[in-house]
Simulated assay, not measured.
Amino acid sequence: MGEQGDAPHDFSRAVLQPVSGYQAVVGFLRREMALGRIQPGDRLPPERRLAEQLGVSRETLRQALRILEGSGQIVITRGASGGAIVQDAALDPRLIREEVRTRAAEIGALTEFREIVESGGAALAAARRTDADLEAMASAQSDLAAAITKAQSRVADTAFHLALAEASGNAFVRDAVEEARVRMFEPVDLMSFDFVKESSWHAHELILDAVRRGEAQAADEAMRAHLRTTRAEFTRVVEG
């Protein structure tokens, strides 16, 4: 997690092509937050530099930052040492739960989609993974075990799933996994998901073990079981 004295985050490598319009800027920054690429405490680059990195005008950027400030996702301070600092926004859990309930069908469909894509990706990873891939997944597991906040748990969980998707050797799988995780976290990111660390860590260990052994069917089945459990736990939290 970043500190306010850290160097500003650099988006120049993250942005493959310029975004267009303030809403697209808001969407891009929220996506980076959802994936844990920028975290609470991180400082965004100075206005001029960030506008250049995103390929937008400074006025467009200011509009986007005002929206993020209004939603509590950043705090903007003035002065020589000021800037935009990412926050761990804390919204009313009752409002978040209500939003999730209204989108239950969409989230259910996303869970089904993830089961289809990520189980196949896990099977491919068992056949194609490299030592570097295994190291990346093991590192994410270590981070998850050491996590002490919900944000840290989410970042480590995401890192594992993306490392596994990368190990599949299929760019379409990797992109689909990333997009599905962003869509999944949009409505549920600020809910209480204390179960994530415990259940996810153990499920990941089963998946990683199968991938290490090169057993595609076992990796597929372990991922399916993981995502079915995730769906059941999600339903319990929403209905609780």
Rank of each mutant, 00 (worst) to 15 (best):
I107K: 08
I96H: 01
G121F: 12
T102D: 08
P93C: 09
P93L: 08
R101G: 15
L91M: 13
A109E: 04
G108I: 00
I116R: 11
A127C: 09
V117E: 12
R97L: 14
A126R: 06
G108N: 15
T102P: 00
I116Q: 14
D92Y: 03
E98A: 15
R101T: 03
T111R: 06
L95A: 11
E98D: 11
A104W: 13
V100T: 12
L95T: 11
E118P: 01
V100M: 11
I107C: 03
E118S: 00
P93T: 09
L95W: 02
E98H: 12
V100Q: 07
R94M: 12
L91W: 10
E115M: 14
F113I: 04
A125D: 02
A125N: 02
R94D: 12
A104D: 11
A122T: 08
S119G: 06
A105E: 11
A109S: 09
T102I: 13
A122P: 00
E98L: 15
S119R: 10
R114F: 04
D92P: 04
E98I: 13
I116P: 00
L91V: 14
S119M: 08
A104M: 15
A104F: 13
F113C: 01
I116L: 14
E98S: 14
R101D: 09
L95G: 05
V117T: 12
A105H: 08
A90V: 12
L95F: 10
V117G: 08
I116F: 15
A90Q: 15
R97S: 14
E98Y: 11
E106W: 06
L91I: 12
A109P: 00
I107T: 11
A122Q: 07
G121N: 08
L124S: 09
E115K: 14
I96M: 11
A109G: 02
E106C: 01
A127Q: 14
T102Q: 12
A123K: 02
G108F: 00
G108H: 10
R94G: 01
E98P: 01
V117H: 05
S119V: 04
I96G: 00
A127S: 13
T102S: 09
E106A: 10
V100C: 10
I107W: 11
E106D: 09
S119C: 04
A122I: 07
G121E: 02
A125Y: 04
A122E: 04
E98V: 13
L110N: 11
A126M: 05
I96T: 12
R103S: 03
P93A: 07
E99Y: 11
T102Y: 05
L110A: 06
E118L: 03
E112K: 09
G121I: 03
L91R: 13
L110F: 05
V100N: 07
P93N: 05
R114C: 02
A126K: 09
A125L: 04
I107G: 02
E115H: 07
I116S: 09
D92K: 01
A109I: 01
E98M: 15
P93F: 07
G120T: 06
E118C: 08
E99Q: 12
D92A: 06
L110T: 10
E115L: 08
L91H: 14
